[in-house]
Design a protein around this nucleic acid. Sequence first.
DNA 1: GAGCAAACTTGCAGTCACTGCAAAACAAGC
DNA 2: GCTTGTTTTGCAGTGACTGCAAGTTTGCTC
Lengths: 215, 215
Amino acid sequence: MTTGTAADPGPAPASAPPSLRDLKKEQTRVRLHTAAVLLALDKGVHEVTVEEVAAAAGVSPRTFFNYYATKEDALVGADPSRTELLRDAVLARPADEPPAVALRATLTEHVLGLEKDPELWRMRRELALRSPELAARIAGAGDRLESALVEAVYTRTGTDPATDLATGLTARTAMAALRAAFHQHRVAGFSGSLLDRLDAAFDAAGLAPAPDSSG
Amino acid sequence: MTTGTAADPGPAPASAPPSLRDLKKEQTRVRLHTAAVLLALDKGVHEVTVEEVAAAAGVSPRTFFNYYATKEDALVGADPSRTELLRDAVLARPADEPPAVALRATLTEHVLGLEKDPELWRMRRELALRSPELAARIAGAGDRLESALVEAVYTRTGTDPATDLATGLTARTAMAALRAAFHQHRVAGFSGSLLDRLDAAFDAAGLAPAPDSSG
DNA sequence: GAGCAAACTTGCAGTCACTGCAAAACAAGC
DNA sequence: GCTTGTTTTGCAGTGACTGCAAGTTTGCTC
């Protein structure tokens, strides 16, 4: 670790039990994100200041930037480690799976993760409603993840991105499906199941279904 | 017109001959963009200041913001009127064309437009090479355009975005194809034809080809 | 439990993007 | 040359974001 700040990737071994310290860091991160969303819902995205968010989360403004690189990152809960996690998840899928299957499985898991904390998810959806520019990122479908996934699938296939167009396109199409699904979900007032919509989007995009994600 | 600044959409009638004033504005816009790119190539994106760009373009810093809303917009040449233009282009395609065809034709035109000024295009490519985060936007494949195109195709079909997933997905897939094509182009050192790559990407994405764009 | 080292927080001082406003410079038409 | 509408500019301010150099806390070791 070279930075010496809270933004560190965390414990080195993947299986390490979260230390007390890491737990606290995670809590602070969530508190900052939650505070940002709440305040944004209350007074509008542009009216919220980092200072307020930090105060609401009980840390100094300076510390805010140890957790999120930008105010917007805090609003959408952009966690670099989450991006890394998803990239690793793609890489961890069985080697014989075609990219489309690995991506579909991974993004499906991802969406399941979004709904883990229902209350927070409710607030985030509301924010997406009021600030559509943030919608894609709130659904975890921003540029950064797209790039990470593209890189991941190329690593899987071991093909040359300069000649193999299809692999990267598949990753980008998968992200397009996620964005389309969330957009539909949003304009539909968040009725119905986002997961179903995502499934439909994957199908419509011609991305092969993951045969069975229970094993 | 309500804003009273240079960021105005321009003359109301589409066929109006560009007045001297409009010509000058366009020149200033290009000068700012060019200066921004040149400076960024010279010293790096983060090292360029708006003040420098404005000075290089021969305007005051304040005037800079009459032309571009953000520094990044100037770097990628984000022209709101261009987004509008593309949206209108999609709307102007024959009503009986399926969305995929209209999108493919429009984005193909768009890419042709990119290469209009070879020298500027060369610099922009170089910038994309050095600052990959900007690549998508440099190719004109950013969030804003994606949203605009999604909206445009839904307008064409007249369907309800809350129930019709396919239409929006098609637009997002088309953008994915553009991004994939440009990404490949970039990692391939900009050898070969971007247009060919885009064609291949559209084909791979299953977007029907535009039968004939000459008429 | 004292002591140590590494990790985390904070304050400070600074840079720079970006904004609203009102006055100046300017262009186009009469 | 004057009028009117547009564009440019200066000014003054807000707030995001950063590097740095203390503080403070945590986890470990003896």
